[in-house]
Design a protein around this nucleic acid. Structure first.
Length: 301
DNA sequence: ATCCAGGTTCGGG
DNA sequence: CCCGAACATGGA
């Protein structure tokens, strides 16, 4: 079927769609990114309309194909979806520089090689990136996915297409309607519920926050994020990396990253945040990609 | 039972 | 400025 519901775009070097899809299947509880038969099904919001898009790799060309399944689109919607999807898969980064910066004598060399073509998968929406980071603070990942699933299935929106449900992450506006006791029921601590409210207020008060932050220097953007209660250095760096497309973010307090270091470099114990900063000086500009790859290594080997 | 999870804030020394 | 406690739940 050839119609204007579809749009394709060219892929850069060092792009492996299957490896990118692996990232989305890191948890059974994933609701917003449905992977089926090598295709990604995802719901997008543009001007209060929901668009269900199927994204897959062309069999004949080095292109990513996108089909809007549920909705007629105009040129502006198409343009938004294109930008969103290109951002999610981080198509603008030239990974050649990353791969060439890694010494073959580095014990992590083979790990990076193994996952070559994996892109740093982005969260397009700032509110989603911030709240997901807060949900993930100080609890094990499986529990974090449970809480995230609660959050989405209670306060997000869904669309049913051909008998299957697809979910989109809650918006900041909904937070003020949520009662404290409902947060509690969904396994949010009082502290986290409060942080989520702080983030929602920040996003509503600064509708262009994502663009504004991306225009700042790394240090300025980090400082600005940390003015939000509940956003410390780990969360700020997580968001700089997963949403704001800074490739030099380093969540040094991250216990998973510390754990990966201990394993790969055979350390007696996990390095402290400061030790980790010292040992990653040669990551110089690629801290975000290193971190993403080492997280991927922990979940996929 | 005890410790640790993809941390942050707050109060005290 | 650095340190411990509280936060809340679940898996090993």
């Amino acid at each position: 079927m050839s119609n204007n519901q579809n749009f394709n775009f060219q892929l850069p070097n060092h792009f492996d769609f299957e490896k990118c899809l692996q990232y989305f299947s890191r948890s059974e509880k994933e609701l917003c990114n449905v992977v089926d038969n090598s295709c990604l099904f995802k719901l997008y919001r543009f001007e209060d309309e929901l668009y269900l898009v199927k994204t897959f790799k062309s069999k004949t060309q080095d292109q990513l194909c996108n089909e809007v399944l549920n909705h007629k689109i105009n040129e502006r919607a198409r343009s938004y979806l294109l930008h969103n999807i290109q951002t999610i898969f981080d198509l603008g980064t030239d990974l050649d520089h990353f791969y060439k910066s890694i010494s073959s004598t580095d014990p992590a060399f083979s790990i990076i090689q193994k996952h070559k073509g994996l892109r740093l998968i982005k969260e397009y929406n700032l509110f989603e990136a911030l709240t997901w980071a807060i949900i993930g603070q100080q609890i094990n990942l499986e529990f974090a996915y449970t809480v995230k699933g609660n959050f989405i299935s209670n306060w997000g929106k869904s669309l049913t297409w051909k008998g299957k449900s697809y979910w989109i992450y809650p918006e900041a506006q909904i937070i003020q309607d949520i009662k404290d006791e409902d947060f509690k029921l969904m396994k949010f601590s009082k502290q986290k519920a409060r942080y989520i409210r702080e983030v929602a207020e920040y996003c509503l008060a600064h509708p262009s926050a994502k663009n504004d932050l991306q225009r700042l220097s790394f240090e300025e953007a980090q400082k600005e994020l940390m003015t939000i209660k509940g956003v410390g250095s780990w969360t700020a760096n997580y968001v700089l990396m997963r949403c704001l497309s800074f490739n030099n973010a380093l969540p040094a307090k991250d216990v998973a990253l510390q754990q990966a270091f201990k394993q790969i470099y055979g350390l007696a114990s996990k390095p402290t945040a400061e030790a980790l900063r010292q040992m990653t000086k040669h990551w110089n500009g690629w801290e975000s990609y290193w971190t993403f790859y080492l997280w991927h290594y922990l979940s996929k080997g």
